[in-house]
Write a protein that binds this DNA or RNA. Structure first.
Length: 628
RNA sequence: GGACGCGUAGCUCAGCUGGAUAGAGCAUUAGCCUUCUAAGCUAACGGUCGAAGGUUCGAAUCCUUCCGCGUUCACCA
């Protein structure tokens, strides 16, 4: 802890003063100030104003004389601003050394917020009948980044991917294969998930328009899929797993990995639903309707809204009856019916497990305990109603907030991008649709971007080898996708535009990565090995102090990000850190420093910046290139 | 129609757990490469924070109403 600790110390000192003056306690804030108002600011005098019947200005003037900074050597003084604020100024001779040395540590910015509590994050959960498109990518990246951030806050994070292998969407492609005669082998070297989504799924649902009998067949097929002794079910298993494997390749390319895969078909066969249904009944969380529209149904009473039917009058459970047992399982509310076996080794060498109902011999994997005290489910906001019901129910079995739905707005396509797909639109943008073939595949975006970055990099660096160029292209392309997906607020719709997404200037990932590469070049070109065992009072220009302060702010941002489940905070911080460095870079010529001491101090600062930016980008799953 | 969300510069957005002068990027304009990589830097231009009320010493931020846009509201999954 660096900055957070200083803020905390000022808070304590301020409280002490209020105490000694016998003032009633007020909940004041101590936070980083905006430029021109000192370094740290406190609003306590505004809050005391009423109590003391004095103007904030008077109060801040009085209080400002009472501070004792013996215990906070990083603070030089405090000023009472005419507006009423208390503005604290940093003593950089102390501060710089603390910040630069702290930033060298491996765990710089790590905070113990979670106390190693286990938390389950579920994300991705894409139907295994098609390839991932840009909309899914928002979910995948969001889930991945929130997991990394929670780990930084000392949570023990387990990551799950729920595979809905028994829905109607799966029935649709099965119909394509069995009724419409689509080959189970894609043509040429097309990826199987692309083939199923782009061709089989789109063509089959298109056919429903003219062939109503075919559409009726879906439910028949669905029933067979759910009966795991049927041939259709076996075929569905084969196909969905093949699609899933391709989907996994896509996310691995984006640097996303999981601990375990959960299959919906297994949830259904596990009898988890029956158990949780009894639990719901015995605890009076649901009620049986004797009369009215819902006569004969079990319903969940929802406040302010219509009751949600859980079990139909014919005794068959509705869709939500799959979500509830899964949620309960994730929270460890029911006995775990699953064993665990190895699904595959992921691209990062991490083992990926999958649930199974088969009896399997003992090994490390089948003892996995994947339930958590807290659960975060990443699903887009169109499911908010359903998720509210689930989290409401879970709150009754566990404490409030145990089950969190991390929602986000959808990704739409810009009119230009829709046109480039050969389709037409009415407005400025259009919702993606798998059935209509109205989407841009994730693989396509990554390929296009990689090519774009490769060309850019090649034109700038004639002497780089092919593999270096490929590496840069990959790092920047993945980073760009990640950054663009995480930068906007969760409740803002992202309108994806193929052309616009290729931007590499301004507030983009490549700008941030570029600042890192520039720092690398400084360190590469000097003979001096930075010696950190020295004072840093020579770093006295505004550019240097701004950079030090920005580096120091890392823990504040991590804190904010963890506590609010807000990944964009880290994205914004990474950008600001890069901006601050770029300005420093332009104005302070490190390698032309006047004295060896100054050179050393500046080199240390550059190293400190690099380490911090690397950790910050690391939380976003973005690599920092040495050259680009 | 009900519920939820969004509305800030020409465009895309930050700021929203109330505070000082509402910030970035893009676009436009003007400067800066005999260079620690110009994927950059320094400026200029650009705002009735959708509208009206309210709470407050103080509102882009909280509350109410209205307007515009979006999502959602099956004994489908």
């Amino acid at each position: 802890m660096v900055f957070l600790e200083i803020l905390e110390n000022i808070r304590k000192e301020t409280s002490k003063i209020l105490d000694s003056q016998k003032y009633d306690p007020v909940s004041f804030s101590v936070e980083s100030a905006k430029p021109g108002f000192g370094d740290i600011t406190c609003n306590v005098s505004f809050l005391l104003s009423k109590q003391l019947k004095k103007s904030p200005q008077e109060i801040s003037k009085e209080i400002s004389h009472l501070y004792d900074f013996d215990n906070i050597p990083q603070i030089k003084n405090v000023e009472s601003h005419p507006s009423g604020y208390l503005n604290f100024n940093i003593d950089y001779t102390q501060f710089s050394k603390l910040v630069i040395n702290s930033s060298l540590k491996e765990n710089y910015g790590s905070l113990d917020i979670g106390h190693n509590e286990k938390i389950v994050v579920e994300h991705t959960s894409v139907n295994p009948n098609k390839a991932l498109h840009v909309g899914h990518i928002r979910n995948v990246i969001l889930g991945d980044i929130i997991s990394k951030i929670l780990r930084k806050g000392n949570f023990d994070v387990k990551i799950l991917n729920y595979v809905d292998d028994s829905g109607l969407q799966v029935a649709d492609i099965i119909i394509g294969f069995t009724e419409l005669g689509f080959s189970q082998e894609p043509s040429e070297n097309q990826k199987f998930d692309h083939y199923c989504g782009d061709t089989v799924y789109v063509k089959t649902t298109e056919k429903y328009e003219t062939d109503k009998k075919l559409e009726e067949k879906r439910h028949e097929i669905l029933k067979q899929i759910e009966d795991n002794s049927s041939n259709v079910s076996k075929m569905a298993q084969t196909i969905t797993r093949k699609v899933l494997n391709e989907q996994l390749k896509t996310v691995w390319n984006l640097g996303v990995f999981y601990d375990c895969l959960n299959f919906e078909s297994q949830i259904i066969h596990s009898k988890l639903w029956e158990k949780i249904f009894e639990k719901l009944k015995s605890e009076n969380q649901i009620k049986y309707e004797e009369a009215g529209d819902n006569a004969g149904c079990w319903v969940i009473p929802a406040e302010g809204e219509d009751d949600k039917i859980l079990v139909r009058s014919n005794g068959v459970a509705t869709y939500i009856a799959k979500d509830i047992p899964y949620a309960a399982w994730k929270l460890g509310l029911v006995e775990d019916p699953f064993s665990y076996k190895i699904h595959s080794t992921q691209k990062n060498d991490q083992t990926l497990y999958e649930t199974t109902l088969d009896e399997i011999p003992d090994h490390d994997g089948n003892k996995l305990n994947l339930s958590g005290n807290k659960v975060i489910t990443v699903i887009d906001n169109r499911q908010i109603r359903l998720q509210k019901i689930v989290s409401g129910l879970m709150a009754k079995f566990k404490e409030e907030g145990a089950y969190t739905h991390l929602g986000y707005e959808s990704v739409t396509l810009s009119a230009d991008t829709v046109k480039s797909l050969g389709l037409s639109v009415d407005g400025e943008s259009a919702q993606m649709s798998g059935r209509k073939g109205l989407y841009v595949n994730a693989d396509t975006v990554l390929e296009t971007l990689t090519k774009r970055v490769y060309d850019e990099s090649k034109s700038r660096n004639e002497n780089l080898s092919e593999s270096e160029l490929q590496n840069i292209a990959n790092i920047v392309a993945v980073g760009t996708i990640r950054y663009e997906m995480i930068k906007p607020d969760l409740d803002k719709i992202i309108t994806f535009d193929l052309k616009n997404s290729l931007r590499l200037e301004g507030d983009t990932c490549s700008y941030i990565q570029y600042s890192y590469a520039r720092a690398s070049r400084i360190l590469e070109k000097t003979e001096t090995k930075p010696n950190f065992d020295s004072g840093f009072e020579l770093l006295s220009s505004e550019y240097e102090k701004n950079l030090i302060k920005k580096i120091a702010m890392f823990d504040v941002q991590v804190n904010d990000s963890v506590n609010n489940f807000s990944p964009k905070v880290i994205a914004k911080y990474s950008y600001e850190l890069a901006v601050t460095f770029s300005s420093f870079y332009e104005h302070v010529k490190v390698l032309k420093s006047e004295t060896p001491e100054l050179l050393n101090a500046r080199l240390c600062l550059v190293v400190s910046f690099q380490k911090t930016l690397k950790s910050s980008l690391g939380l976003l799953g973005i690599d920092a290139p040495e050259r680009m």
